[in-house]
Amino acid sequence: MRNRVVPTIKLYDYLIVPIQIELDDATVEKLQLQLLNEISEKNIKGIIIDVSMVDVIDSYISFVLSETAGMAKAMGCYTVICGIQPAVALTLAQMGVRLRDIFTARNLEDAIDMLNNLE
């Protein structure tokens, strides 16, 4: 598909987004547009963002992710994030970053389970 920065997997009504690239500002902004397009084109009810491969999430990246979740919510789609590395979680918490509109799950199974129960 055109302009996809992150390859995604559609599973039932959900979109699994495993982030395996270095997230710079431009990429994360492109990702936002990509996800919003995919939600509407593929009729997605839930997004699962797997960040287990991401070593650094700074304030801007987390802001864009929250923003994306807010936009997805406006389109009737829930966002779950899973696999945050312990060190990343600690850094985010100590910076006082809040992931608004995002549910956190322990892993991919947990995330799918969560979305199954959201209806």
Partner: peptide
């Protein structure tokens, strides 16, 4: 430590931005 590495990288990222 891994936690410190992450914090340092995050701090530099914020500064660079």
């Amino acid at each position: 430590s891994l936690a410190d590495v992450t914090k340092i990288a995050t701090a530099v990222s914020e500064l660079a931005r």
